[in-house]
Amino acid sequence: MALVRVISSDGAAFLVSQRLAKRSGKLKTEIETFRKSSDNSEAQPEIRIVTIRAEILRLVLQWLQQHQNDPVLPANQNEQDGRGDAEMGQSQWDRDFLAPMDLGIVMELILAANHLEVKGLLDITCKLVESKITGRTVDEIRTAFKLKSDFKGNEEEQTRLENRWCVEN
């Protein structure tokens, strides 16, 4: 089994099968680039991900392993009928996987999934964040995501005014 070494920002190395790694768009490109530049086709590729720390990288790989037999969806297929995302995010394993995480981890996971181009993981994590926004008040959202309301001048008032003229289709 062809393997690849994936190294996190803090230096931890993960040895995974290339087949699994290729389910990430980013790793796939990296492996292919390595192949082209390397003379020795047997050599084990080594990929350094400078933006993702070990704990998060481990979670991404764990998710990939669980979903290694899912069909790979073309990047924009889900947007067409709008159902795809929901179906992807519904498995019990995913729920258990995300349940113990706090929002900070989820956000890091989103960034990692985005960087590594793992669409399925990006979908379920975004959905989770979305559910934390739905139905909440402005203050609740601010607290939950530690947002700073550093509006300048009357910007906030202006936005409030604009909202007033706006209504769901």
Partner: peptide
């Protein structure tokens, strides 16, 4: 995927 009401709230959270 957020509703209009949620989006309006989000607009007010930060610039």
């Amino acid at each position: 995927k957020l509703s209009v009401q949620d989006l309006m709230n989000c607009r007010l959270t930060c610039p």
